[in-house]
Simulated scan of single mutants.
Amino acid sequence: MTATKLAIVGVGKIARDQHIPAIAADPAFELAATVSGSGGVEGVENFATVDALLEARPDVTALSLCMPPVPRFAAAFAAIANGRHVMLEKPPGATVAEVLTLDGLARQTGVSLFATWHSRYAAGVEPAREWLADKPIRRVRVDWKEDVRKWHPGQAWIWQPGGLGVFDPGINALSILTEIMPLPLHLSGAELTFPENRETPIAADLTFTGPDGIDATAGFDWRQEGGEIWQIEVETDQGTLRLESGGARLTIDGTDRPLEDDGEYPGLYRRFATLLADGGSDVDLAPLIHVADAFMLGRRVTTDAFHD
């Protein structure tokens, strides 16, 4: 099998920590180029812009876009219009509309578009989905709390419009929730807490509505100290399921379920390789729609200024 020549656009922390190791371990892909203004990868040709890459390297047939969401649309549009396959780091865009535009363009040009949700590839997510599939749901509680100073040190873009604020990690929880739930939920209320000196929220409390009066709530907070809390608890009439550690641990009624775990990002690239082989796309906007609804419905609360 000939490896697909792929370029990473945006060589930052997530690319170095996750994408580059996953690509190196996957025989379906070859890291053939990068686009970065702050330094690329040793031994790999780097370009200053996506347009320069597209002009110089017709052999690079796929791009993995790892830059922040606001500038991502222009890069993705240019690549798809040029006939290249595109993989989008989460969230897939700064707005729902622009991702729909990219999806339509990909279908028109016959290329694959993959809007990724890496947390769906945590080891416990698929077993959780399977266990919940035939069970009536009584209650859902999501808690996704971490220290922003640890996970996003000095990253100004997350506090700017389009940066999502606490929904940057919170959308990971929503991507799992929308994957495992056997019934649809829609947002019915939200309270968003903004530091007085920031333009995106540092905390959010969400309420969802679903069939049969289900009780579903979520709490996101970037002020967590003493370790992360990344968990989803689902109470059914046949027991209580809990996903912890971002989906890496699964318990049913307090008993651990054995899991096979080879990492979230290797799973993403296996999925991308399958889409390329089949000529398909995977663009699920459900998590991003929940975030958009939270900003539409959310009551704004102001709190003390936040400083890194």
Rank of each mutant, 00 (worst) to 15 (best):
I8D: 00
G10M: 12
Q18F: 14
I23H: 00
P27Q: 10
A28H: 14
V35H: 01
G39R: 07
G39P: 06
G43E: 04
G43D: 09
T49C: 13
L54T: 08
E55D: 11
A56K: 15
D59K: 06
V60I: 07
L63C: 04
M67C: 14
P68D: 05
V70W: 06
A76G: 13
F77K: 15
F77Y: 12
F77V: 09
A81C: 04
A81K: 14
H85F: 07
M87E: 05
K90D: 12
T95D: 04
A97V: 09
E98L: 06
V99L: 12
V99E: 10
A106R: 02
A106W: 11
T109Y: 01
G110H: 10
F114A: 05
A115H: 07
W117T: 09
W117C: 03
H118K: 12
R120Q: 15
G124I: 07
P127T: 11
A128C: 11
W131C: 08
V142E: 05
W144L: 01
K145P: 01
E146W: 13
W159Y: 14
W159S: 08
W159E: 05
G162K: 00
G165M: 14
D168N: 14
S175T: 10
I176K: 02
H186C: 03
P195E: 13
N197P: 01
T200A: 11
A203Y: 04
A203N: 04
A204F: 05
D205Y: 08
T207I: 07
T209Y: 04
D212I: 05
G213K: 13
I214Q: 06
A216T: 03
G219S: 14
G219F: 02
F220G: 01
F220T: 00
D221Y: 11
I229H: 03
Q231L: 08
E233Y: 00
T236G: 13
T236H: 09
L243I: 09
E244W: 02
G247T: 06
L250M: 03
I252Q: 10
P258E: 12
E264Y: 03
Y265N: 03
L268V: 10
R271H: 15
F272E: 06
T274N: 09
T274M: 08
L276C: 06
L276H: 04
D278E: 15
D278P: 01
S281K: 12
D282W: 01
D282T: 07
A286H: 11
D293E: 15
A294V: 04
M296V: 15
T303P: 10
